[in-house]
Design a protein around this nucleic acid. Structure first.
Lengths: 302, 302
DNA sequence: TGCATTTACGAGACACGTAATCATT
DNA sequence: AATGATTACGTGTCTCGTAAATGCA
């Protein structure tokens, strides 16, 4: 196979991309320089080089803002940088499988089986250094891609049988590990608590709690819900407490609601909705992450 | 926002990645050098640099083959390079929206509505330079990511309501535009033609035609089908001809089979299976690609 | 006038090619 | 021996920092 033709455009320099992202995020050449530990001058030159390479202005100066082309590049840039990191992390793990297990999960991905599996693993290899990180979905997905965490569990609400629609940041594969009905959580004495089922579309005018880190309704397949309260935390106990206190409604997995006194879960008639938990895995399952994945019921890949 | 801490690992040099991919694919330093128009020496140095950077051997020499770490890197490398190209293409299109429309599709993604929409577009802007490219799924998806084509239609078989599971190569979003029942295509006089419905799992021992470019059954949610014939083409007419002539069975969309004399489509009882066509779009819909997308019934993004 | 970006310039690092060397079949 | 990867070395390019210049509020 001696094809000698493979004329390729020059690569976009990731170094420049990183600088570009820094400028875009800080909104300032000097601030970006500070963050990257460069001089202002270097940043200016790098942006100029990138603009020359791409043949267009990426930023306006004074004030610094993204142009249309800049916005497009920015969308790609972060993904590229994450991938680059992910590649390095993946190779690194091939050399020295870490003697640690860092499990990352979104708040609602936690469940008894997860707890049990983790306990089992830690029982097996007693001196395993293990961490658990709870954060919002995007953070967890990115961390899984870059190898910052070894295994990720993310949750979300979808139509039955639908996989979660995840942002695609790494070369991971999502495998479903758990599913349960979705319900609207309401206080026990709330008028809706006696209803047999609800149509979310009829509840657009109800007061909802938007909890971006836990159960953002921007990702529900329903339009126009209005948030009466925005909850910035990642703690589910506080969140259910808010619901029980009557601050608003929220969609949650049924088993969780059942376990909270003061809360009633009302089934959702439409749209058809389930709560799903998916495991994010790289094609190579390092131990002990692979064993945990197996305990959670994920099949070996391929 | 003047956070000055952002210590970051050095990026993996895409230049080196490209060389690495060339070596991995050609299985030879010299062949890679030829393809990239470098000297052997340069390639050798680049691989050495990459291995030093990552701290591990990526390739064995004599014979040249990927190590474990090398395999991992290889999986990432192509995706990264595609993304890099995609970023450049996307920015380029922001500057000068192309006065052309290149539509890429997998063979079974073609349908009357697609044809009609394309005719409509071409009627609107008479002198529109338009191309149509038909190829296998991976090629089409990659081409859409790199901007080689402006709009892509890809098809596949999934469970009802499931989206297609596409390899994730660019920053595209898939939107379903068509669906139809999946059937097993058999010759009219075939014994199975009289059956009301079939369970694919019972047909593992039948003779199948595997057509990787058209309807690869490796992507069907059924295990262990055996191919009696492998069809390497992308032409559907030849393929249905082979089926009609009794060379084997294949799963196809019902409407297609109905239109072919000599073929009978037998409904599939299990697993539940539909044929879907999805439109791949970048977040920015350049004209005229955006108009075609709209004609095909895709909603504006976001 | 003052703060922020750009330009000019020189020093160091880097990556290529040439060519000699080494290794494997 | 011959094919093919590596090493040594020189040259040109590139990118950084310093410092001076420019430009917008």
């Amino acid at each position: 196979m001696t094809d000698d033709i493979g004329i390729s455009i020059a690569d976009v320099d990731p170094h420049l991309l990183r600088t570009f992202v820094a400028v875009a995020e800080t909104g300032s050449f000097s601030a970006a320089a500070q963050r990257l530990r460069y001089t202002q001058s270097a940043v200016s030159q790098q942006i100029a080089a990138l603009e020359a390479d791409l043949g267009t202005a990426l930023l306006t100066r004074r004030p610094v803002a993204l142009t249309t082309a800049g916005e497009r590049l920015h969308r790609h840039a972060n993904l590229i940088l994450v991938r680059l990191e992910a590649a390095r992390a993946d190779v690194t793990r091939a050399i020295a499988p870490p003697g640690r297990l860092i499990l990352g999960l979104t708040p609602l991905a936690w469940s008894e089986p997860v707890s049990a599996a983790l306990a089992r693993i830690r029982g097996d290899s007693a001196r395993l250094r293990s961490h658990v990180l709870v954060d919002g979905r995007d953070r967890i997905v990115t961390a899984a891609a870059t190898g910052e965490i070894d295994l990720a569990l993310v949750d979300g609400f979808t139509a039955p049988n639908d996989p979660l629609r995840l942002p695609e940041p790494g070369a991971q594969v999502a495998v479903g590990v758990a599913g349960s009905p979705a319900v609207v959580a309401v206080p026990d004495r709330h008028p809706l608590a006696r209803r047999a089922a609800l149509d979310l579309n009829d509840l657009a005018d109800a007061y909802w709690i938007d909890a971006p880190m836990v159960a953002p309704f921007s990702r529900l397949p329903v339009d126009g819900l209005r948030a009466g309260l925005r909850y910035e935390g990642a703690d589910v106990t506080v969140l259910t407490g808010l619901v029980a206190a009557g601050h608003g409604l929220i969609v949650l997995p049924a088993p969780l609601v059942e376990r909270r006194p003061g809360l009633t879960g009302v089934p959702i008639a439409a749209p058809r909705l389930v709560h799903r938990v998916e495991l994010l895995r790289t094609p190579n399952d390092e131990e002990p992450a692979g064993r945990l994945a197996a305990l959670l019921g994920a099949q070996p890949l391929q």
